[in-house]
Amino acid sequence: MTRTRDFAQVNVFSSAPYLGNPVAVVLDAEGLSDEEMQRIAKWTNLSETTFVFPATDPAADYRLRIFTPGGELPFAGHPTLGSAHAWLENGGTPRDPATVVQECGAGLVGLRRGDGILSFAAPDTMHSGPLDAADVERFATAFGIARD
């Protein structure tokens, strides 16, 4: 991890400095291991740090991995928006000028571009239906609430 990498910190959900939700974006993450990305995410000390890679899906413009200080997420909203913004600001060119397509753990996410604003529809749900009893018990315990 000795080479330098382009990096941005993006203020998401606000045009006023220090009032948005920050995300750290490593713009050229190719070659970083999972352990290195996790270490960088802990170092930035933000809720999420993202890593931009070349797309592996031909329909995507780039691939994104999202890490918290505690682990990787398949998808998260403000990191998706902030990373797309940083990618575009740093020379990223989408196949379709009106839409950026991000590949992530939850699949493909299309982001619309319009009037300087990025927006997206949430990806499909990865899990649906009732939770098993062990998960319900674990969640209730974690939140300190009654199981019912």
Results as ranks from 00 to 15, higher is better:
residue 105 G to E: 04
residue 104 C to V: 05
residue 74 P to T: 06
residue 85 H to I: 13
residue 72 E to I: 02
residue 91 G to C: 10
residue 82 G to T: 07
residue 92 G to W: 07
residue 97 P to W: 08
residue 91 G to W: 12
residue 96 D to I: 14
residue 84 A to F: 05
residue 78 H to E: 05
residue 74 P to R: 05
residue 74 P to A: 14
residue 72 E to W: 00
residue 93 T to P: 04
residue 65 R to H: 05
residue 93 T to E: 15
residue 75 F to Q: 01
residue 61 D to T: 07
residue 92 G to S: 11
residue 63 R to C: 04
residue 99 T to M: 12
residue 89 E to S: 14
residue 76 A to H: 02
residue 103 E to L: 10
residue 93 T to L: 12
residue 61 D to G: 06
residue 82 G to N: 09
residue 65 R to T: 01
residue 68 T to F: 01
residue 73 L to Y: 03
residue 94 P to T: 13
residue 95 R to A: 15
residue 98 A to H: 13
residue 95 R to L: 14
residue 87 W to G: 05
residue 67 F to N: 01
residue 65 R to V: 03
residue 80 T to F: 02
residue 104 C to P: 01
residue 66 I to W: 00
residue 74 P to S: 15
residue 94 P to F: 06
residue 59 A to V: 11
residue 62 Y to N: 10
residue 84 A to S: 15
residue 100 V to W: 00
residue 81 L to P: 03
residue 64 L to R: 02
residue 69 P to H: 11
residue 87 W to N: 04
residue 105 G to W: 04
residue 106 A to V: 05
residue 71 G to D: 11
residue 72 E to C: 03
residue 95 R to C: 09
residue 66 I to V: 14
residue 82 G to I: 09
residue 60 A to I: 09
residue 97 P to N: 10
residue 65 R to N: 02
residue 100 V to P: 00
residue 96 D to T: 12
residue 91 G to D: 04
residue 94 P to I: 13
residue 62 Y to A: 09
residue 102 Q to S: 07
residue 69 P to T: 06
residue 87 W to M: 10
residue 66 I to L: 07
residue 91 G to S: 13
residue 84 A to R: 00
residue 93 T to H: 13
residue 76 A to L: 02
residue 104 C to D: 02
residue 83 S to M: 08
residue 70 G to H: 14
residue 89 E to Y: 06
residue 99 T to E: 13
residue 89 E to F: 10
residue 102 Q to K: 06
residue 78 H to I: 04
